[in-house]
């Protein structure tokens, strides 16, 4: 049984202009010890997908799925209290904005201890010890003295480490990190990513990494799911997707990254012309077809999902072709 099995997840948001199809028929699985990177640009639905798993969607958003199971527990039928018991205990989430994701009114120690004491019958001293231990584990020096500090007294990198430690307090089976490095300096980004990877291996958790940074994916992920306009366009093991990117959108994304040794100085990087389609109202066919240079009439019809190899699937009518080198 996979740790996480999402089958046909759909998220709709009613707006004044009509129904916004934010996420459309997304399916994936995740095993313990695996790292799944969900990749896509802003508005592709990748963050909403991760929030849907935690049942933290904005109240207007409507979540539907054929099934969504976490370690056998049906997340679609779980009640509010059941979800609260799962959250922070067995599934934890690390957010994008370390500057604003901690409560300014309480100390780091208080917020860390709270995460443990909500789910475990432990005393203050034990919660404090666990907090110090995890702060040290995430690479914070003088951990004990940090407990009495307030979030505004810490740098962005430190706050993100605190967030990670907070997510680990109950030793969850699944950690969802929503763009955990976006708001940080480049040097700190690498440190945080490696930390996440190491912790994921050490604790044997499932890790979902939501990101728009393909460099991040290549470094830490085992599986990748490429999202475009609320749909999953290509998914598979990192080696397969990066080695033989098959969906035109994935190919476009990879062309947009400079490759050391291959991209000559001054050579223009690949771009994808056009814009993400408006997701309000019904949308038939491939969402990428208005930006795809190989689009045909067949793209306006329903798009079949095709198996390209073990675990490697894409939603495109075209035959997979090799990326022009």
């Amino acid at each position: 049984m996979p740790l996480l099995d999402v089958d046909n997840l759909t998220i709709e948001i009613p707006t004044e202009a009509g129904l916004l199809h934010a996420v459309n028929g997304v399916s994936f699985t995740l095993e313990r010890g695996e790292t799944l990177a969900i990749v896509g640009e802003s508005g592709s639905g990748k963050s909403l997908t991760s929030l849907a798993l935690m049942d933290l969607l904005p109240s207007r958003a409507v979540r539907k799925a054929r099934s969504m199971r976490f370690d056998g527990i049906d997340l679609m039928t779980a009640g509010r209290r059941e979800m609260e018991d799962l959250r922070g205990d067995r599934m934890a989430m690390i957010f994008q904005e370390p500057m604003t994701s901690l409560n300014p009114a309480y100390t780091v120690g208080d917020q860390l201890a709270e995460a443990l004491r909500r789910h475990r019958p432990v005393g203050r001293a034990a919660a404090r010890d666990r907090a110090v231990h995890l702060l040290e584990r995430v690479g914070i020096t003088a951990a004990a003295s940090r407990l009495g500090q307030y979030p505004h007294q810490l740098s962005g990198g430190l706050r993100q480490r605190v967030m990670i430690a907070m997510g680990l307090m109950c030793e969850p089976d699944l950690i969802i990190a929503d763009e955990p490095t976006t708001a940080l300096d480049v040097t700190i980004q690498a440190q945080i990513l490696l930390l996440l990877r190491d912790i994921q291996r050490e604790f044997g958790m499932g890790l979902i990494l939501v990101t728009h940074d393909l460099g991040v994916v290549a470094r830490v992920a085992t599986k990748v799911a490429v999202m475009y306009a609320g749909r999953l366009v290509e998914t598979g093991p990192v080696e397969a997707v990066f080695g033989a990117p098959s969906h035109p959108y994935t190919q476009g994304l990879l062309r947009a990254i400079p490759v050391p040794g291959r991209t000559r100085p001054g050579e223009p990087l690949g771009t994808i012309p056009g814009q993400v389609p408006n997701l309000i109202g019904p949308l038939a066919g491939c969402a990428f077809r208005n930006r795809c240079d190989r689009a045909t009439d067949a793209c306006a019809a329903a798009i079949p999902e095709r198996d390209l190899g073990p675990g490697h699937r894409m939603a495109c009518v075209l035959d997979p072709v090799a990326v022009p080198a």
Binding site: M83, G88, F95, T100, L102
Partner: peptide, 10 residues
């Protein structure tokens, strides 16, 4: 964001 964090802690 910190209220979302609080809810994410369960």
């Amino acid at each position: 964001d910190y209220i979302r964090t609080a809810r994410a802690k369960g």
